[in-house]
Design a protein around this nucleic acid. Structure first.
Lengths: 135, 135
DNA sequence: GCTAGAATTGGAATTATTCTAATTGCAATT
DNA sequence: AATTGCAATTAGAATAATTCCAATTCTAGC
């Protein structure tokens, strides 16, 4: 039962979910913790992690990560892609239409049973491109 | 100068590079450290990280990461894609031909200056698919 | 209401990564 | 060829990220 009223939905988990749903950002676990404390002052870091894992498993939030930085969590559940700046680390969402032939190709090559697919562009964000040009 | 003989190529960095080039795996920093110690017993963990970052910047090794696990490093420098098992975490390389229209689309949407692109398939690996079926 | 078992929490421990003071090595100068 | 000053590199120590597991809280059956 992945409903907001389902039994597993404790007040801690609801607080974590609310924090993520109220933000446009891709937050780190630490940022989620800081914000969750405002709603539920006694919540522990471990519980935030438990909640993030739970909510991810229930399909209520998404997790992304790049390089060796901390993982990030967001409310965007629809399939989407990412662009990440190789200089400042800025992460933005993209909506691309991935050809079904590409998915088929990937599934065949890997012999995996596909669940989801994702495309990542690495490059310079507009701000960093500008500052590179000035050099 | 990203040459194996360039001045920045210290014995520590050479050891780290050798470890990665001698392995088929996508190793964590910890695994690289363990193996580097065999070549250069006194090397520190921090130096392994420094070396990994240096080698990555020089384009001599690749870094990938998924979810909140540790980042992984590999020798495969050619552009390639990944499939990751959502159950056991197994990571395999894929070679897909990404249509140039997709790259253009991504660059336009994000307004980023593209450097590299990557496609990720999440799903069940053949082994996990089999064990799921048996349930 | 009581009890056993399952689910959840959070303090403590572990693991991953970065910071920065100390060291090393190079190149210009004597 | 030794000396100096500077920049690059190293690695111990600190910090940050994540997980473990004992204690606690729920829940269902009696």
């Amino acid at each position: 039962m992945s409903n907001i009223r389902s039994s597993g939905m404790t007040k801690q988990r609801r607080a974590v979910l609310q924090v993520i749903c109220d933000s446009d950002e891709h937050m780190t676990a630490n940022e989620v913790f800081e914000n969750s404390r405002r709603i539920l002052p006694g919540i522990s870091f471990a519980t935030v992690y438990n909640s993030l894992h739970y909510l991810k498993n229930e399909g209520m939030i998404g997790e992304v990560s790049f390089g060796s930085d901390a993982a990030r969590y967001d409310r965007n559940l629809t399939r989407h892609d990412h662009a990440i700046c190789s200089k400042c680390g800025k992460l933005v969402d993209l909506d691309l239409s991935i050809p079904s032939t590409l998915i088929k190709q990937a599934a065949e090559h890997s012999r995996f049973k596909p669940e989801s697919i994702e495309f990542t562009l690495r490059g310079l964000c507009p701000e960093c491109t500008r500052s590179e040009d000035q050099k």
